[in-house]
């Protein structure tokens, strides 16, 4: 049954290897740091955007609210991901991104009606949509890597949930960063492309990020346990 000697050995080993460690800042602060990196990336890309078109696009209420929804979703999902990476925090934080997500997806969905309501709208062409997709993926990659590295420093006990929330944060941030470069108004096909990109980013983060984060929580394999136990 209980094996106090091996516990004692492990405790001794851990105490011997103890080194002072810098306490992790709170989830709010870490989410803010990551969001600042997103903002920095946005500012870096800003000179490449068409400012006049951006201004005109932000004049349309549903596009404006969709951008706001994406930004809020990104912030909320990043905060929730950092919360879920700390043991003992409520899992209810995972629900935090839902209201802004509803705003983002809902208002973006209004764009679907644009083709019927305003036939004169500037609709997307296949080449442009491919450009959007590539942009979303290209921006998501560095943001995902940065977020995963930051999350790894804590102890995500539920790596898949943390990684999926991180993926949502990244996808929403990429969508928000796309706004200044979006060459056309939203349509159903456009929304589908964006949605596919978001799902791919969330899915990949959940799948790969989950495994990446799982290796950080100090779990040892059974083989290792058998080696160290008498």
């Amino acid at each position: 049954m209980s094996d106090p000697a091996s516990h004692e050995r492990l405790v001794e080993e851990l105490a011997r290897s103890l080194a002072p460690i810098r306490r992790l800042p709170g989830p709010g602060w870490r989410a803010l740091v990551w969001s600042s990196a997103v903002l920095a990336l946005g500012l870096l890309l800003l000179p490449l955007s068409d400012a006049a078109a951006l201004q005109a696009r932000l004049g349309v209420p549903d596009l404006r609210y969709a951008a706001l929804g994406a930004i809020l979703t990104s912030l909320a999902a990043a905060f929730a991901a950092f919360q879920s990476s700390v043991p003992g925090r409520s899992r209810a934080w995972a629900l935090l991104p839902i209201p802004p997500l509803v705003l983002w997806i809902g208002v973006s969905g209004l764009g679907c009606l644009r083709a019927w309501l305003a036939p004169a709208s500037n609709l997307a062409e296949t080449g442009e949509m491919r450009g959007c997709f590539v942009f979303l993926m290209g921006v998501s990659l560095p943001l995902s890597v940065l977020l995963a590295m930051m999350l790894r420093r804590a102890c995500p006990l539920n790596p898949s949930l943390t990684a999926a929330l991180g993926g949502l944060a990244v996808a929403a941030a990429a969508a928000a960063l796309l706004v200044p470069f979006h060459p056309h108004d939203a349509t159903a096909t456009d929304l589908a492309v964006h949605l596919a990109a978001v799902l791919i980013v969330v899915g990949l983060n959940g799948l790969l990020g989950g495994r990446f984060l799982e290796g950080t929580t100090g779990r040892r394999s059974v083989a290792t346990a058998a080696d160290t136990d008498p």
């Binding site: 049954m1 209980s2 094996d3 091996s6 516990h7 492990l10 405790v11 851990l14 290897s17 103890l18 460690i21 810098r22 306490r23 992790l24 709170g26 990476s85 700390v86 043991p87 420093r153 804590a154 102890c155 950080t216 929580t217 100090g218 779990r219 040892r220 059974v222 346990a225 136990d229």
Partner: peptide, 21 residues
């Protein structure tokens, strides 16, 4: 139970930076 105890001790060690006093 012994496995859980040891895995938990290892996780405490790994995650000690995440504890907020």
């Amino acid at each position: 139970i012994d496995d859980v105890v040891q895995d938990t001790l290892l996780t405490i060690h790994r995650a000690r930076a995440s504890y907020d006093p």
